[in-house]
């Protein structure tokens, strides 16, 4: 359980490439006005998303944040359906109603991105409670940013997961900034795993740039959860390469800092090295993989571009069932 086998390694590497290419492509399209309302780019954070998902079963549940393209793609949603949602088209994962911040597929275990910081953790915790009540063999994962570590609702959910011993994993997708605010400026005590451990659950600070390390800690957490041992907190330290919203630059961090993370800690470069070293693939195969990813993302853009808009006549549809008051 501590390493990824050949098949999983290649799948993880490809998935990280998909996310990177998707984000860089979407970022440019967003600057051209193709993504109504803007988007939050997750470039740099691929390993934390893919590592977690590599350890989950397909029908495990996740709920996430405003920055969730990477989680959604890693969960197995196609670039086409995610890109179409960014374009707010009817073929998107949320039918064009949600947009970049509200990617979901509840039937497939994706309980949604969220516009409200910390809200995904509570929803995922509730799903874990549902799993426990219905005695299913699944786990639920709640993603939250470092900024979301300071909102009360996050900790209310964690406490509840602990006291009910829920099959729950909290992943802090810690890219070290909340908009322009460095985590160290607003996080009392500094050490997030230490903070979480005060709530009485196994808590770890890990390298979120190493997909295998993320996989390992998540897999172990999943084992504990399935064994009825309750939740785990994982603080995966990572880095976002772009601004908080597309197009934002800001003076809050140095270009040197960004360059350092990009050049010496990039999760895709790092894991490409691992794959080559273990001889899971040749350089040629990796180049081919990258080219096939490029094609897939191009196809996703074409699909999103050519998809129809949702019908205006649907704006009030689906708000409620309309069935209350009907005799059963």
């Amino acid at each position: 359980m501590s390493t990824l086998d050949k098949e999983k390694s290649l799948a993880a590497l490809r998935q990280m490439m998909v996310i990177r290419d998707f984000e860089e492509t979407a970022d440019k399209l967003c600057l051209r006005g193709k993504v109504p309302g803007g988007m939050h780019n997750s470039s740099g954070q691929e390993a934390a998303a893919v590592g977690v998902m590599s350890a989950l079963a397909p029908d495990d549940v996740i709920a996430t944040t405003h920055r969730s393209h990477h989680h959604t793609l890693a969960k197995g949603f196609t670039p086409k359906s995610v890109m179409a949602e960014l374009f707010a088209k009817s073929t998107g994962v949320s039918g064009g109603r949600g947009g970049s911040m509200h990617l979901a597929g509840v039937e497939r275990g994706h309980f949604g991105g969220n516009g409200i910081v910390g809200a995904g953790v509570g929803i995922a915790m509730g799903a874990a409670l549902g799993i426990q009540v219905l005695k299913d063999k699944k786990v639920s994962v709640g993603f939250v940013g470092d900024g979301g570590m300071n909102t009360g609702r996050t900790w209310e959910a964690i406490n509840m997961a602990v006291i009910y011993k829920l099959p729950f994993i909290i992943i802090c997708d810690n890219n070290q900034y909340a908009v322009e605010t460095f985590v160290g400026r607003v996080t009392g005590g500094g050490d997030l795993a230490k903070r979480a451990s005060g709530f009485g659950l196994p808590s770890f600070n890990i390298n979120g740039q190493d997909v295998e390390e993320v996989y390992k800690y998540t897999a172990e957490a999943r084992e504990r959860a399935l064994a009825g041992e309750g939740p785990t907190f994982i603080n995966a330290v990572t880095y976002r390469y772009y601004g908080h919203n597309v197009g934002e630059k800001g003076q809050y961090r140095t270009q040197e800092e960004i360059a350092e993370w990009r050049t010496s800690k990039d999760p895709i470069d790092y894991f490409t090295g691992v794959v080559l070293e273990r001889k899971f693939a040749t350089q040629q195969e990796i180049d081919d993989m990258r080219a096939s990813v490029r094609t897939e993302i191009d196809e996703a853009v074409a699909f999103a571009e050519s998809s129809p808009e949702p019908a205006i006549s649907t704006i009030t549809q689906g708000v409620d069932s309309g069935k209350l008051g009907i005799q059963l």
């Binding site: 109504p36 088209k89 109603r97 205006i312 704006i315």
Partner: peptide, 16 residues
């Protein structure tokens, strides 16, 4: 406005 949450889709949002 319509009795509905606002959509990400600009035309749907405007129409509401």
């Amino acid at each position: 406005a319509a009795r509905a949450p606002l959509s990400a889709n600009p035309a749907m949002s405007e129409a509401a």
